[in-house]
Structures are given as structure tokens and as C-alpha cells.
Design a binder for these strands. Structure first.
Lengths: 157, 157
DNA sequence: CGAATCTCAGGCGAACTGATATGC
DNA sequence: CGCATATCAGTTGGCCTGAGATTC
């Protein structure tokens, strides 16, 4: 039951944050998920799409669709990768950088609320725990069963 | 920046959990979000749709669409509310209860992973913090500005 | 050769907005 | 009357599956 409570609390917190962010960014013309992509692009001069997939916790097909939208709005550019001709190098345009800055300001309130009831230490600890949690949950997905006893499907609890 | 890191960690954890749950429930024929609705219905004999909206952190229109799907699969029933004729009383069918039990077993692994790297105390504390966080973030959305200085839009950080 | 990177077509559930009917 | 509960129509962005081309 604790696991389920944690899962539901995680859901509640994420959905609340996501909605609030979407609302605060409405005037910027971008969604919360697009904001995440732009944010990832500000830390790192030029990233490939698969790097972006990792940093945004997205998947290749979804990210591509988002990049097409962002490209249509002239917020990002995609150029051929200098050394790897399979890859594409994604970067913010000046307009993208400007829109992101405004969006960042508009979403300040959300981050403020996130930190409102936590001490700095608690928030940092929580971020760390959530990251570990994410990596544990994500692991064991694409692995094609190496040893043997991976999906002990019928285990009770 | 801490706020953003926390937000990104929250996103990563939620999306990882959601994906994993969707995968584990594929054979049950329900999605992770539908699972949440069924779970809410197991705790509480019969709930109205607006009660379900609260418990699942959803919204009325989205929930309605989900209920129609679940009703089409004969997992839930909607009957007129005994005292309030505006409301509808939602409850699990026997089939719904049975499907939910299987789904619960199939998703055990996800909850196990969630708790894997946390002590019981940490997990409980985290669930509590996430709930508070959700309520803080959610508040101030539907409020039509009572005092005056609600959206101090330009605040820096 | 296998593996990685990205493209493309298509489908679907979830999340909305806005308007409406009905009952409290 | 205002407010709450739920319905309906319609739109959108996000997330997937599966197939394919190209390059490492």
C-alpha cells in the first residue's frame, strides 16, 4: 500500500505542476513539455536528438514531433551534425532563447510553490531521491532478459 | 535552479513510473490512468464523478471520457445517485474488480521498484511531501483574485 | 554484419476549452 | 437566484507502434 500511496502522490504532484506550468506559459505560446525541451537546450550548446531524449525523459518519436513544432515557430534549428552524419544538431535560435527567458520568468511561480514547503536541504534530497527512483524504475525495460529470472510475474507483493 | 531541478526530477520519476505501469498493464487491457480510476473505486463503495475527479487528480471532462471507456468494457457501472439527482454513483462491476486484482498483481513490480531505494520512513515522508507539494501547487488556480496582488508576473526569482 | 540515429505513417488515450442541461 | 454536477462537441499535443532509410 505504501508503494501505491507514493505512486499516487507522485502523480498528484506531477499533474498539478504540469497544469500550473501549462497555464502560466499559455501567453508564451508554448506548452510545459515544450518548455522542458527548450530548457534542456539552454544547458549545452548543441545537442543531438537522442541526447535530448535522455535529458527530457521523452522518446525519439515524440521528441521529433515536438521539434517539428518548435522548428515551425522558429524557436529551434536543426543542422547536420559535424562528425556523425546520422545525427542532427539541435540548438536554440535567438528567438527561442528570448521566448524561453520570458517563459522562465512566467513559470517562476510554479517553482516557488514547489519549494514553498520544503527546506533547501529537503528539496535537494527529494530531487536526488526522485532521480534515483526514476532510474530504478526505468531500468529493466529495454533489457531483453539476460540472466533468466527477470519478470517473476506472479510474485505476490 | 533548485526548483527546476526538482521539477525535472519529478517529471522523470513520474514518466518512468507511468510508462512502466502502462507496459505492465498491457495484457490487462487497461492503461495506467484507467488503473488509477479503478484503484480509487476500490476504496469507497460508490463514488460520484466529482469525488473521483479529486481522488484521481483528473478533471471532469477527462474523467468522463475514461468512464465511458471503462463502462464499455463492463468494468464499471454508473447508476443514479440515491439522493442527489444531478450526480451519478460510480462503482466497480464484478468483472472490474477481477480485472483490477490482476492489474494490481501485474503492477506490483513497479511499486516494488519505487520502494527499492528508500527506507519505509523515507518513502512515507516523501509521499507526504509530494502530497503537500501537490496541494500547494494546485491552490491559487481557480481563485478569481481576491486581495489584489496575485500574479506578480515580473518577479525575478 | 549489427547497432545507432533519425524519418515517416498512423493510431489512441488523455487533457483541455466552451457551451449546455439539469438539479441543489 | 447562484452554484454544483454532469453532458456533449470538438481540438490539441503527447505518447506510442511499426516500418524504413542512412550511417557508424
Amino acid at each position: 500500500m505504501l508503494g501505491h500511496e507514493l505512486a499516487m502522490a507522485l502523480r498528484a504532484a506531477y499533474l498539478a505542476m504540469h497544469r500550473r506550468t501549462d497555464n502560466s506559459l499559455a501567453k508564451s505560446g508554448i506548452t510545459a513539455d515544450q518548455f522542458v525541451v527548450l530548457a534542456a537546450l539552454t544547458e549545452g550548446i548543441a545537442l543531438t536528438q537522442s541526447e535530448l531524449v535522455c535529458r527530457t525523459s521523452s522518446d525519439p518519436n515524440t521528441l521529433r514531433a515536438m521539434l517539428i513544432i518548435l522548428e515551425g515557430q522558429r524557436l529551434i534549428e536543426r543542422r547536420p551534425h559535424p562528425t556523425d552524419r546520422r545525427a542532427r544538431s539541435v540548438s536554440l535560435t535567438r528567438r527561442g532563447r528570448s521566448v524561453f527567458r520570458r517563459a522562465w520568468r512566467r513559470s517562476e511561480g510554479v517553482r516557488k510553490h514547489l519549494l514553498a514547503e520544503l527546506t533547501t536541504a529537503e528539496a535537494a534530497s527529494m530531487a536526488g531521491q526522485l532521480r534515483r527512483l526514476a532510474s530504478v524504475v526505468a531500468k529493466g525495460r529495454a533489457e531483453p532478459v539476460k540472466s533468466s529470472h527477470r519478470t517473476a510475474v506472479g510474485t505476490t507483493s
